[in-house]
Computed example of a mutant assay.
Amino acid sequence: MRNMRAGIEHLGILSGVFNQYRIFYGEDNDLVRCREFLRERLEKDESVIFLAVEEGDDALEVLGFTQLYPIFSSVSLKRHWLLNDLFVTEKARRRGIGAGLLNSARQLAEKTGAKGLTLETGHDNENAQKLYEKFGFKKHTEFHYTYKL
């Protein structure tokens, strides 16, 4: 198993696991829209995606991914990364893949001189919360507002 940064050439193998991720969160199965969405992010260089992959006989198998979006802090005058998506396929869970993907995200933040990483997770997603806290993420209680359209 290894982690790698996804490029447009990985669109085929990435789209399937991205679709699984969306289904996990209650969205409709829509591989075509997933592929279009990811293609746009990659072509416009609007996100960074890391894949956890395993070498198969004929191809790479995606075990999980994380997608990060750049945001900026006006106060610190630095880049910040929004860790928007982190997903490990059901069959690959409990193998340290999520931790490996978090390491890739942290390395990206360090390499780009970012202020830090921000993420959100469900209040009931206790397994993810434990992993994030193990990596040094702190619950933000000072600033929390969301406006949904």
Rank of each mutant, 00 (worst) to 15 (best):
L38H: 04
F50Y: 15
G136T: 08
T141K: 14
F137V: 06
L14N: 01
N125M: 11
V48S: 02
G12L: 07
I23G: 04
F135M: 09
R5G: 01
K91N: 11
G122L: 15
G26A: 09
Q107H: 13
G12E: 12
G96L: 11
T141C: 09
N103Q: 12
I13S: 03
E27M: 13
G136H: 13
I23A: 06
E110K: 15
E36C: 09
F50P: 00
K111Q: 08
G116P: 02
K78M: 02
L108M: 11
G16M: 05
L149I: 11
F50T: 02
K78Y: 00
N3H: 10
I49C: 07
I97G: 00
G98F: 06
K148T: 13
F135N: 07
A105L: 11
R2H: 06
Q67R: 14
L101H: 05
H123A: 15
V75Q: 04
G56V: 09
Y21P: 01
D57M: 12
D124N: 12
R22F: 13
A92I: 09
V48P: 01
N127V: 08
G96R: 08
N3Q: 08
G136D: 06
F24D: 03
I13M: 12
E133H: 09
K134D: 09
L31H: 12
K115T: 00
L38E: 02
M4D: 03
E120K: 11
R5D: 00
K139C: 07
T89K: 10
L68H: 01
V62S: 00
S47N: 04
T89H: 05
R22A: 07
